[in-house]
């Protein structure tokens, strides 16, 4: 089972991203469960969404929250300074983050794989959201697929077209560009 936790801010499309990534894995033939943080979301406030992906052929999950994720996806880099976004992440796990910086520049422990992608710039390029508040949720998924290679970019694009209400083509292109431009720093040898 893969457990993924997504961090964003209310209004960025974090919940839609968790559903789209879930559908992408579903299109790969995997059983999934995705859900938002059980709260009262407000625009701009930190929000979380969760995704579980079953092993091929399996179809059962717990229904509790995710405390020890395998992967973390961060839509807003300013969250790094505000909350402990890495809490519970398993050693050897992935951190995929929206940032213009190379992974080495982010002060993330070397027990984790880190991938950065400038999802904000990509979103602005494809006119997703506004310049002040770009909608980065589809670009970051492309970055996730490019870094982890656990799900194909074709299925990411198909999933985006299914769940994104406006500009589906532009959103799919943003994901594609992020897929190809993601920068990776692998974890150093870890004892798990």
């Amino acid at each position: 089972m893969i457990e993924i936790r997504m961090h964003g801010r209310g209004g960025q499309g974090t919940v839609v991203a968790s559903k789209a990534l879930g559908i992408a894995f579903f299109l790969e033939g995997r059983y999934i469960q995705s859900y938002p943080q059980y709260g009262v979301e407000r625009r701009g406030a930190p929000v979380q969404a969760y995704l579980r992906v079953a092993e091929p052929g399996e179809e059962e999950f717990v229904r509790s929250q995710i405390y020890e994720p395998d992967h973390i996806i961060i839509l807003d880099p300013t969250l790094l300074d505000q909350i402990n976004v890495l809490e519970g992440l398993k050693p050897g796990g992935w951190v995929v983050i929206n940032s213009p910086e190379p992974p080495e520049k982010l002060n993330i422990p070397d027990i984790y794989n880190v991938a950065t992608v400038d999802a904000s710039a990509i979103a602005i390029k494809y006119r997703l959201g506004t310049k002040a508040q770009p909608i980065v949720n589809t670009a970051i998924l492309g970055g996730y697929a490019g870094a982890t290679k656990l799900v194909s970019i074709e299925n990411i694009k198909e999933a985006i077209k299914q769940v994104v209400p406006i500009k589906p083509e532009e959103n799919a292109k943003a994901a594609e560009e992020a897929y190809h431009s993601v920068k990776i720093r692998n974890a150093s040898e870890v004892k798990v």
Binding site: S18, G22, F26, Y31, I32, Q33, S34, Y35, Y38, R63
Partner: peptide, 11 residues
């Protein structure tokens, strides 16, 4: 159940 089912996506 609220959220645990109502807002959870699955196939």
């Amino acid at each position: 159940e609220a959220f645990v089912l109502s807002h959870t996506n699955e196939p």
